[in-house]
Amino acid sequence: MIASLKYEFNRANGASDKTGVTEMCLAIPGRIAGIRDGYAEIDYGGVFKQASLRLVKNARVGDYALVHAGFVIQLLDQEAGAELEKLIAETRG
């Protein structure tokens, strides 16, 4: 369900951006490809950047991470997609 919603939105409502400025509080998800000296190498679909691991515990290679201004601020729960689907279904009930 969520995959379908994402697709529909990107197709129908991906309005063009006049300036291309990025938002300050934007946090971007990426996959942890490597860890060294308190920093993670984050893979954003082929583009790699470093992020500090000072704000999270127990990060592991392969985890999905939410990155904000050079720091991992949370590890993403990959199981939670199903949880949101359940929440949406409940709302409909």
């Binding site: 946090a27 000072r54 704000l55 999270v56 515990k57 939410l66 601020i73 949370q74 993403l76 729960d77 990959q78 939670a80 997609g81 949880e83 949101l84 929440l87």
Partner: peptide, 14 residues
């Protein structure tokens, strides 16, 4: 409604 990134207690380390 943002369970993939948000927990009840938040990020304790931060």
């Amino acid at each position: 409604m943002y369970p993939r990134a948000v927990t009840e207690q938040g990020n304790r380390v931060a």
